[in-house]
Every structure is written in C-alpha cells, then in structure tokens.
Nucleic acid binder design. Structure first.
Lengths: 222, 222
DNA sequence: GTCTATATACAGATAGAC
DNA sequence: GTCTATCTGTATATAGAC
C-alpha cells in the first residue's frame, strides 16, 4: 500500500482525449452539449442505433457544427466513452485503509464499489463498452483501465498489506482481489445490466457486501 | 437436489423458436446455412455492423431466400441467439453431485462452468447478448435463462443440500451460489470478453477453480 | 423455392451562405 | 463558428422471372 500511494486516482498516460483541440470542454459550450447528448443517446441504445442526426438534434446543434468538433461518428463515440469513464468510474477518495481492521476496510471499499458498479451511468457504460469492444478495442482497454483495473489494483494492494501484517494469509493477492470483487459483482450485475432486475436498495447492497466480507475473511484467515 | 431432478437440463417453456415453421432446421438445409452464417457474423461483430447482404453472401444464398425464411433482420438475430443459447450454454450432464464430497462436487462443477464460460462461442454470445440487451429485452431474458440461470439453479440446489446434510453452514443458498459463481467468473471474464487477455490454459483454469473452492469451503465451514 | 434486379429510405459526411 | 440544404453510399426489404 506504500509504493503506489493512490492506486485508485486518475492517471493520464496515453489519453486520446488530450489530443483534441478543445479539452476539457467549457461547460455549456457546443462541445460539452454534444458530448452530453452523445452520452445520453449512445449509452441508452448503443453505437449502431444512434444517428448523427439524432445527436445533433438532441444537442440543439446542426450536424455541420457537430462535424466541426468531431471528425466522425467513431471519434465522437470514443470521446464520449473516455469522458464518461473518467467522470463515473473511478471516483474513490484515497484513505488510509491499511490502518483499519481488514474486515472494515473491505466492507467500506466493497460498499463504495458496489454502489459505483450499480449506478445507472456505470451500468450503461459497462454495457456499451462490452457490446462494442470488438469494434473499438482501444476503447475497451481505456474502459478497463479507468474502471475495473483501478479497483483491482487498489484491492490487490490491500491484500498484499493484509498478508504482510498478518491480518490474513494470502498467497496470491491478485487472485484474492479477483475473488473478492467477483463475489461482489456476481451474476446480479449481469441481471441488472440486462434490466432483468431492478437496482437493489441500500440495505440489500450492504447485506450483500457484509456476507462477502465474512466469507472472504473466514476463507483467508491466518 | 431431489425435487428438481435435473436443474441444468433444457426446459422448453415459452420457446420463440418453436413458432417458426421450420424447426429444428435440417442440417445442410438453407435455414441451417443461414443460421450458421448469421451466428458467425453477428457473434463476431454485433448486430449493427452486419448487413443482410453479408449474411446472404456468407450463407451462399440470395437475399430473397433469406427473407423467405426470416421476415426481418430482427427475427433472424433472435432465432440465431436462441439457437446458439441452446447449443452452447447448458451442456451439462446431470450427475449425482449430492453424494460427493462438497469440495469435489464444487471443483467438478466449477471446472465445467469455467470452461463453458470461457469457450469462444459462449464468450461471443455473452458479448452480443449484453450489448444488444437494450434493443432486444426478450433475448436478454432467454439468454439469461438458458445459460447463467441454469447454473445458478444447479449450484443453489447443491448449496441447499450441503446445508441440509451438514457439510457446510449456509443460511442463504442462493446468495452463496452467486458468490461461488461470481468468484469463478471474476474480472477475468470481462478482460477475456474484451479481448484484453487470451483464454487461459487448462492448468491455470483448474488452479483458479481450486482456489475458489478452498476459499468457499473454509468460509462456509460448519 | 430460388435467383437477379430494384424500390425506398436513411445513414454519414460536406458545400457554401451568413 | 454556425446554419440550411444536399451529395453519395449503402441498408433493409420486395417484385417478378425461372
């Protein structure tokens, strides 16, 4: 936990958005309006089902203006995904989890994780990123790195620390992190993403996290 | 485990394919060729990126023939998904897992599960089903019921039995099944589905399952 | 049943006025 | 920079010959 001081913070390595002439967009400006409209439409119905006409109409801009800022539908889509990723997938304050009881740290992080994962925006980004990952491999990578991978790194660091301090007995910290986050996600995430089930209430989420933490701490007890 | 004799077998309730005039398609017949081509193309690149021209060309049929069997692109897509679901997502023989040691049963089922989940066809179906779930909610349901839900039911039944016979101490069997399958899936499934990582080898998969089983059995030990 | 050829609509992208 | 109007390709779906 010492070496990477804040594994869940935003890094800016190889950011395709940084290359765009306007960035970040002034709130209320045309680019901002366009990105907002694109987010709304693409995330709601996917890449293929959205026309540039619809984006322009929703943003109250003409198509020509749209193309003045984004050279193609692909580029707009990419910019939108990157924008949403950084806005909604990694908002976790860095705190001193290593000093807490391991169960408390996991419970705390787990609650933040599951709430983030099941927020409407994150669900939408997830669905689109998975669905279009074949057509936009670069975006899939950006999505994974800005969201799921940050959590993997943060939890892995916590696992390393828990093992070092003897709180748990963990041979493969990365594997343990996979297991913990996987338990929390579970098939429920799939059902919710496909709208087969509503987003659960707070108490239900907390009970879910508590159960996973208990199982995990017992299973990895020294 | 007694009441549902075989929770992982195929049920035929409310099957949209049964309504089609040809079904099942004669191997080598035009409908079969078309469905095969549709599977190949749709699963590879998603719904929006595939044209009916491409399907006809790939199947070596004319577009008119295609439309003679499937009234629209939507209907073809739906038929293809249903077809693939029943072919690739639930192929598990029913055995007497209840009589085995619980760890052995979980290990056995886990290995089958993870191999099925990470098979190229299942990955492709999964990606498309998630990506198009908003446009085709009925299909999302069919996919979930024919694949993930069968596993949930089978593992839940096993959990109930393990608790009843005192092998484990499980208050919420469904939750426990979620946790077990979630651990196995983990973020690795996401990385593989997005082609950020190759499909792991057999030994790696088995080690993954073993670790999850150990964690699970310790965590739920009586 | 199966094909070739075509109708019709709409997509993404641009030209040119202001 | 922003708009209106339009070009051009291609998609789904069908008509009519064999």
């Amino acid at each position: 936990m010492e070496k990477q001081s804040c594994p869940l913070s935003h890094g800016d390595e190889s950011d395709p958005l940084a290359k765009l002439p306007f960035w970040p967009p002034e709130p209320g400006s045309k680019p901002a309006l366009i990105l907002e409209a694109a987010g709304k439409l693409f995330l709601e119905t996917g890449y293929g089902a959205v026309s540039m006409d619809a984006v322009a109409r929703t943003a109250n801009v003409s198509k020509a203006t749209l193309y003045a800022y984004f050279r193609s539908k692909d580029e707009l889509f990419a910019a939108m995904i990157n924008c949403e990723c950084r806005r909604h997938l990694g908002d976790l304050q860095c705190e001193e989890f290593a000093r807490m009881e391991i169960a408390d740290a996991l419970r705390h992080l787990g609650r933040v994780f599951i709430r983030m994962l099941l927020s409407p925006k994150a669900l939408a980004v997830y669905r689109v990123a998975v669905g279009e990952s074949h057509r936009f491999p670069e975006l899939a990578k950006a999505f994974y790195n800005s969201g799921p991978n940050r959590w993997m790194e943060g939890i892995t660091a916590l696992m390393i620390d828990a093992d070092r301090t003897g709180k748990l007995r963990i041979d493969d910290p990365r594997l343990a992190a996979e297991q913990f986050l996987g338990m929390l996600r579970s098939h429920r995430h799939l059902r919710i993403i496909m709208a087969l089930e509503p987003i659960p209430g707070e108490e239900q989420l907390d009970a879910f996290v508590d159960s996973a933490v208990t199982l995990f701490c017992r299973g990895y007890a020294p």
